[in-house]
Design a protein around this nucleic acid. Sequence first.
DNA 1: GATGAATGAGGATTCATTCAT
DNA 2: TATGAATGAATCCTCATTCAT
Lengths: 200, 200, 200, 200
Amino acid sequence: MNVATASPRRKELVRIAARLFVEEGFDRTTVRMLAQEMGIKSGSLFHHFADKQEILCAVIEEGMFSALAIAREHLARLEAGSAPASRHQQARERLLALARAHLETLLTDRNAHVVALYEWRRLEQASREHLVHLRDEYEALWRDAIEVAVAAGLLKGDALLLRQFMLGALNWSVRWYRPEGERSPDELAEALVDSLCRLP
Amino acid sequence: MNVATASPRRKELVRIAARLFVEEGFDRTTVRMLAQEMGIKSGSLFHHFADKQEILCAVIEEGMFSALAIAREHLARLEAGSAPASRHQQARERLLALARAHLETLLTDRNAHVVALYEWRRLEQASREHLVHLRDEYEALWRDAIEVAVAAGLLKGDALLLRQFMLGALNWSVRWYRPEGERSPDELAEALVDSLCRLP
Amino acid sequence: MNVATASPRRKELVRIAARLFVEEGFDRTTVRMLAQEMGIKSGSLFHHFADKQEILCAVIEEGMFSALAIAREHLARLEAGSAPASRHQQARERLLALARAHLETLLTDRNAHVVALYEWRRLEQASREHLVHLRDEYEALWRDAIEVAVAAGLLKGDALLLRQFMLGALNWSVRWYRPEGERSPDELAEALVDSLCRLP
Amino acid sequence: MNVATASPRRKELVRIAARLFVEEGFDRTTVRMLAQEMGIKSGSLFHHFADKQEILCAVIEEGMFSALAIAREHLARLEAGSAPASRHQQARERLLALARAHLETLLTDRNAHVVALYEWRRLEQASREHLVHLRDEYEALWRDAIEVAVAAGLLKGDALLLRQFMLGALNWSVRWYRPEGERSPDELAEALVDSLCRLP
DNA sequence: GATGAATGAGGATTCATTCAT
DNA sequence: TATGAATGAATCCTCATTCAT
């Protein structure tokens, strides 16, 4: 059972679960709380999910799926609309697209992807194995973009570390970012990319 | 009761608690697990701490104290030993000192400071108020160093965002750093500072 | 609703239920397990049976019916085919026929009769009253045969106790008998009768 | 942890559990019922036993221990007090001693041994392995006594089957025996031995 | 200080049963 | 007849906390 084949009902439950997992953390979110928010009784939850772990798994799967989809979408838009640009300029656009996509799922959509990042440790081994390839795929997008940027002289340093630093900086934003503040997620993305990129 | 006045016994208990909170997370660490690791029975724990929350509070206090102490120590060593250097160079050294100190408490000492960062949300209001000034003090060290770096043209961009990004990148390292890997925390700190700093 | 008037579908469901009740015990057999084995969903089960108790009742009724039918059949075959024999010999044959019939339903047919014996306590009062006359009828066959055997000097002792002992020995065989072992149920029956009967 | 080393409190809890398991069956006995009868709250039960299975295990261990102890006691009394008797007579006394002991733990003491016999299937694999050697020891007492009886010409037939039959007859008595009836357990034992033994 | 026993509120989960479709 | 979703009461078990000894 994966995101693509899930019933609309189940998708809705997953969305609600994602919100609670972000607000309270997985451990502190009780099955009763989940059921309450879903408008059913706690016993009924187990008609849809085998156990609490499966809910977490479904949320994280959804989080990684949408992160991946939106990242690809942003990249595709780049290629479609791009006027010819310098190699340097192209590499920067690509990084920026990924950073924007990342913050869009993290701060705007603000739920399943956050759970994927912050509750990954709570996955049992079996679930983890089921999901790790999604994470790998996502990270591969970043790896490629960063390698290109390094090759173009846009970024300086070890590509792997740069990826960890960039993703860390972005991921941690969940902890301090307030949507009602003065900067948009897009501005954040731009600021991060600017702070790292060398001028041409 | 704060770190400075704590008995050696209590300090040891806090150290053990910190380790468990990192390994399992605060919510999943039971009072029984704590007691077991401390070589006492769970009932006895409450002779040392009023409740579980107080243990968390003590750990985080210890984490912030030591982060602050080590950061100050690194900065002091700078001033003591520094040959005259360019303003640019000085600003870089200061950032590096803070980053090294941060990773030292996070990755080497590897416990109380990690709890302070990752379990802050679990603090009840009262505990939070008790501790927030420590966090502010610590962040002030970073704020100043970054403002100086920006003023010196070493870093580019908004100082507040730069601090969030740098701390995010460092904090997230807890999630992926493996001590048995090929890079030391110091090398990490250097790589981060290098990746952000403009050459003179 | 009793066995005689049951639809073929219902009879099949009862057979499946009997098997599960033997394998798992009544308490541990869930309505969902029953439905699953029957190839329907658990909600549908309640179109066939008012509740779980009715299933147990139907199984035990079937078990007692078939035990009774097969015992009578064995006895009838005796009378039909018997060459004139000594009173002693006749009494022995009759005991043997009952023992064989008992083990046939218990070990060969191996289900509903076992449930009747081992899950009788789980019957609610109403169901018990509905079924107790069947059990009485069955036990009457044994009572008569044993009284004849005692009168003929074939068995020694109190007739009531002898019945309890014989049935106990036979019923308990469910617990240790393995069909793949070296003895057939018929050989068991013979061995039991032999062990109790005095030679002429 | 075994019967011999158990605290008095635990022994009492085991005794109460044994009674409930006989009255209701293991599956239908809830931890709440157990706690209620023990005069504690259900959570407190788990201070004494890791889980419900451990309670069953403790009860069955106690049942097998006492069955073994009482059987040995009866046999010892035989040897101590016996005037010289015929081999035939001796074999009969030995069977009788075992049968009496068996019914004493089953019908008089009436609890833990009954659970051992009737709830053995509910033991999980690990518990079963822990207990099976006790059962083997107990059955060995019977095996020896029956082999001697067969050798002495007292019993007729296969020794293994004879043991299964005798134990089955005795075990099943739990289902029909009423202490307020006219026969004592000792009389039952005598009746069973008499019904099987050949006169000299 | 330390302990073992107890508590009580709450944890996830199970399950017979109901019912609209 | 059949189903999928829901129910609600009950299940075993966990855990921070208390307290007499």
